[in-house]
Design a binder for these strands. Structure first.
Lengths: 253, 253
DNA sequence: ACCCGTCAACTGGTTGGACCAGTTGACTCA
DNA sequence: TGAGTCAACTGGTCCAACCAGTTGACGGGT
């Protein structure tokens, strides 16, 4: 049992969190006006500057639209927010209106991972291919320890995506892993099937080294589908249960 | 010729932009300390609060790490920034250290679009399928006007991604389109091949309506590859020319 | 000579208040 | 009835002060 560092949230962090949750959970309709900064600062009993800093962050996330003179209005986050919102949703404690977020993240990981493997086999620099082989070795070296394997696996995939030379994939990967939803920090037992398949990992690395784009894509797809489709199936099983959000997948046997 | 609205940048917006560009362009090494808030406010000749608001946005983007008492340090954005950074890079005027961003965005669009089409055919609600058919009709109705076709095409893909039910795809799509790099606002002539293929669009819609997941994926992949691989080829042709950034692709014949 | 506690000089965090600059809508006058 | 006006909002900016952590140099102890 390890202790996690105590998070010291500043005032504006807390205001940010509350407003974010309120918006994402749908408490404000799209295009509805948020209370004025002065009003919010009175409500939260903080200074107006703290509120303003929080609003800036919400603006950066694509959740609100501010205009001098006019009111600050809530945006439809499904239409305007970027992938970083997934990163921010980690801290959201109340039930999200999106029960499928865990599945969705895994699907995206599978999709991007497979294409990155393809591109990597196709055009990665020799150094990048060597780095991938090394990463596989490090992964295989910790083989009994699931937690460390998960960590090494993540590092390996980062190498592969870096090798693909696609910045967009890399940034998306950051978004998905920083919001450690389901992929990293919360490894459902289902993920062990993928994690334990050392042979497939090694094959993938070899195919990339060899330049076999189609093979690497196929291997990566099969490997990632182990977790992604499992999650999708689990979601189908628990479909339309309302409370079964993306957060309590760990209860599975 | 239409006039675009004049952007009224606030002071903190400008500070944000400058710091963002400075960081992304590599003027600060990773883990290097940014000047203190007081110093920055003196340099830019603005109030410290304006600097703070800008720093908050940088923090939200994953570009800096702030800690009370300690200095604000620059992060390695390739390791910590999310996909929203692509959105923010639109405003960056100086040459980016990433010459392939346009190609990368198109590759990601192709990858996600194809998978979304698959999922959409597999599990979209009847209403969503109907909405896609309608979107194709609207697209086909403006067929000679390339600008309006591009707009309708974007709306169609949004419908498809919404139909896939994958929130992560939807958010990523927002990130990619909001940063209108190459995909939307700046349609390279190469894109016309994809845009003009009305038949493929219609076929895609039909396959989704019919529930033909594999077919929809194949059609979408082929359609999106028209632009994506063209861009990749163009990048290969202009490889290692330094100045040939993602911004001036429109000069191609 | 070396180690370690102390403390001043940083850093960011927070507050209050004042004023500027746009937007909005009600209200007035032609 | 219509257009213009203006007061009452909204967010944007600034100043000044103080609180709360971090850092590193300095000096006294061993």
């Amino acid at each position: 049992m390890t202790f996690e560092p105590i998070s010291r949230q500043s005032v504006s962090d807390q205001v940010f969190g509350r407003l974010r949750d309120a918006i994402v959970s749908g408490r404000y309709a799209a295009d509805e006006a948020l209370p004025s900064e002065r009003e919010l600062s009175a409500t939260f009993e903080v200074n107006r500057h703290a509120v303003r800093e929080a609003l800036r962050r919400l603006q950066q996330l694509g959740l609100v639209r501010v205009s001098q003179g006019g009111a600050t209005r809530v945006l439809d986050w499904r239409a305007t927010a970027g992938l970083d919102l997934a990163m921010a949703l980690v801290g959201a404690e109340d039930v999200l209106p999106v029960a499928t977020l865990g599945r969705d993240v895994l699907e995206m990981r599978a999709c991007i991972g497979a294409d990155a493997a393809r591109l990597c086999a196709e055009r990665a620099a020799p150094g990048a291919r060597a780095a991938i082989a090394e990463a596989v070795d490090r992964y295989a070296a910790v083989v009994p320890d699931l937690a460390r394997m998960a960590e090494a696996d993540l590092a390996l995939w980062r190498r592969i995506i870096e090798g693909s030379g696609n910045i967009a994939y890399l940034l998306a990967f950051n978004s998905l892993t920083a919001g450690a939803i389901a992929v990293g920090h919360m490894p459902a037992p289902r993920r062990t099937a993928e994690l334990l398949d050392v042979g497939a990992h090694r094959r993938l690395s070899d195919q990339i080294a060899w330049g076999d784009a189609a093979g690497a894509q196929r291997t990566a797809r099969a490997l990632l589908a182990l977790t992604a489709t499992g999650e999708a199936a689990a979601h189908d099983r628990a479909a339309t249960q309302g409370e079964a959000g993306a957060h309590d997948e760990s209860a599975a046997p």
